[in-house]
Design a binder for these strands. Sequence first.
DNA 1: TTCTCCAACTTTACAGTGTAAACTTTACAT
DNA 2: ATGTAAAGTTTACACTGTAAAGTTGGAGAA
Lengths: 204, 204
Amino acid sequence: MTDHSGKKPHHHGDLRAALIQSGIDILTESGLEALTLRRCAARAGVSHAAPAHHFDGLSGLRAAIAKEGFDRFRTQMLRSRASGSQSPEGRILSLCRGYLDFAVENPALFALIFSCGPMSQFEEDMKAGTATAYGVLRETCAPFVPEGADPLVVETQVWSLIHGFSHLFLAGTFGPDSGPPDHHRLFAPVMALLREIGTPPAPK
Amino acid sequence: MTDHSGKKPHHHGDLRAALIQSGIDILTESGLEALTLRRCAARAGVSHAAPAHHFDGLSGLRAAIAKEGFDRFRTQMLRSRASGSQSPEGRILSLCRGYLDFAVENPALFALIFSCGPMSQFEEDMKAGTATAYGVLRETCAPFVPEGADPLVVETQVWSLIHGFSHLFLAGTFGPDSGPPDHHRLFAPVMALLREIGTPPAPK
DNA sequence: TTCTCCAACTTTACAGTGTAAACTTTACAT
DNA sequence: ATGTAAAGTTTACACTGTAAAGTTGGAGAA
């Protein structure tokens, strides 16, 4: 209704994209609680009511930012996966590094993406974003799925492990200030999982 | 400065405790975004500025609620752990069940406890709460720590797995509506981890 | 008892927020 | 040029957190 593809708007060059970028900037600079419709609008140089013509209120703006964030998240994981060893183990470990690094570098955006409360608005857009990011994880996990087994089990395990580690690390639960990301502490459990899963005693 | 122990206040029976309980009720009934100073105060039957005498603003109230929530979280895990098989495997599996069940039954409180953004205020209280809840996990993991190994590694793995699964499950990432908690999907990876960790090829 | 004090609580005020409605401007099709 | 609808502005309102000043009521001292 309000927008679909790359139609150039009339007055502003490309509000909506500008609003999303403003929102991401605010998240990066000032955290999750600072993400405000009015501040977003002000940063983009428009009146505080302008976003209403592009998003369905604040939740709509948050959903749009989350979708964009999810795309960048996926991109960073792909880049990280391509940067290291291309063995199955190397690929999945590099993917995990990309996952954790994104969370550490963009904590507020990461939190927004996975904020469980107002997930209601997301729906279509979010499911698409989840699907593609999930697809990256899935194809990286594929070599470790025992023949005849449900790939969902392996994917769930790996994703839970990466995500839980990243979230707890960000929340400071592992200590008041655990220093740099410490990838090894994440890689060791992932490898432990893969060793157990990748060598099934009796697949059938 | 504002309070310390069980000193009975003058007018109200025991505001502070009442405010915390009101907050938890609001979280349970209406979600994280509905937790408001004024609503909390109204529900406790006091003016909207009354909480200022017991907590340091909204963040202080949230911290106090998170601490109380963490205590209940720990209690539920202990109860769950005591309810099943007392073998090392049974204890850790029951603990995981308690973890996931608490998250599913109290999603907003669970999110508040682990909200990473405004972790600044927590400090003392939160660290104590984390320590005790972490202690429960630690002693449950102890039997699986290979001799001479760092217990932190095992604890981190198990906690990341439980937490990531619970968080992603709550966020609906595993599907639009994955039905009931499905403990088996959590237990299988935990067991896989324990099998790998508990039988070290060569500890030293 | 009466007085005094002070913590607990209320009232008032203010800046900032999201949202809705009415209004103004501008680009485009006809 | 003209009409129309989208894009953006202005105005208004209910709600939020926070700070300051005002009120109340119980506890200890005279």
